[in-house]
């Protein structure tokens, strides 16, 4: 009965129902992409994009256009800048990423303090799903659905690109197009997650579900399912927890997801720490 009340009682509030749906949706989109990002080793790239969108949000506000457009342009622009600097200097990729994303992020901070607006920096950084507006929900839905459709259509090529880009080239596929496709959907996903977890913690949704799934499965299709279940349930339960315990929504989601990860890391049947110890010990 207590559990039932815990679940049902918050549903009388429209804003909370909305928040639960939106975060579940964002959790699903991030979970799907997460499988590709963890296998490709692009976690840092996700972090870079999420920080680089800040000036885009401010500029979009100043120009009075949807925030998603500004965020996408700057997020994607940062990845193009990273690619350009990397191929034209002798610097290693991690250094280039570090330089570019902090540069974009700092520009965003400067702009947000200079351009008069009602943007709450705290909401960009840490999300504000409980107070999400209908306009923002529509933008989240568009960005998220586009990502899901692109991945659904190109999933085999993207998987091949993550696994063996040389083979993709050898059979005449355009790996440049695959590279930018994956970067674009990554940027779109960051845009979709902006309102839920905020840019600081979106990286968690982009990396942790895929990592959990990778510890639990040897097949990509199962990975997708495990990733989606862990991510969506963390997003829904986290939103509930944030209401009941009056804590940050993004924070609650990420803490839950991290707990799932720790559980997977310890108890995974094949790759868990307990199992590995037993294999070594026996």
């Amino acid at each position: 009965m207590v559990v039932w009340n815990w679940i049902v009682e918050p549903l009388q509030y429209g804003f909370l129902v909305k928040a639960i749906w939106v975060s579940a949706f964002v959790g699903l989109v991030c979970a799907v992409l997460s499988c590709y990002i963890t296998l490709k080793g692009w976690s840092l790239m996700g972090d870079a994009i999420s920080h680089a969108v800040v000036p885009g949000v401010v500029v979009a506000y100043a120009l009075n256009i949807p925030f998603a457009i500004g965020a996408f342009v700057f997020g994607f622009g940062a990845t193009v800048a990273i690619g350009y600097v990397k191929s034209n200097t002798r610097l290693k990729e991690d250094a280039v990423i570090g330089v570019i994303f902090t540069g974009f992020f700092a520009l965003g901070l400067v702009l947000v303090t200079k351009i008069p607006s009602n943007i709450d920096l705290f909401h960009i950084l840490f999300g504000n799903v409980l107070g999400i507006s209908t306009g923002d929900i529509i933008q989240t839905l568009i960005a998220g659905c586009t990502t899901l459709i692109v991945i659904l259509l190109r999933r085999r090529d993207l998987l091949l690109f993550c696994f063996d880009p040389n083979h993709a080239k050898a059979i005449g596929l355009n790996t440049q197009v695959m590279y930018y496709t994956l970067l674009s959907v990554l940027a779109l996903t960051v845009v979709a997650a902006l309102q839920t977890t905020g840019i600081i913690m979106v990286i968690s949704l982009l990396v942790t579900p895929g990592s959990i799934a990778y510890l639990l499965s040897d097949r990509f299709d199962y990975m997708l399912v495990i990733s989606a279940i862990s991510s969506v349930s963390a997003c829904v339960l986290g939103t509930y927890a944030s209401y009941h315990f009056d804590v940050s929504t993004g924070g609650a989601i990420v803490v839950l997801l991290t707990l799932f990860f720790v559980a997977a890391m310890v108890f995974a049947p094949k790759y868990g720490i307990l199992r590995q110890k037993r294999v070594v010990g026996s």
Partner: peptide, 23 residues
Amino acid sequence: AQKKQLMAYVPQSDEVDWNFPIS
């Protein structure tokens, strides 16, 4: 030649991610 599927490549073992979740 690539577009016509003329060339196949068998990579060196250390070029492959053997932990990749694929059969």
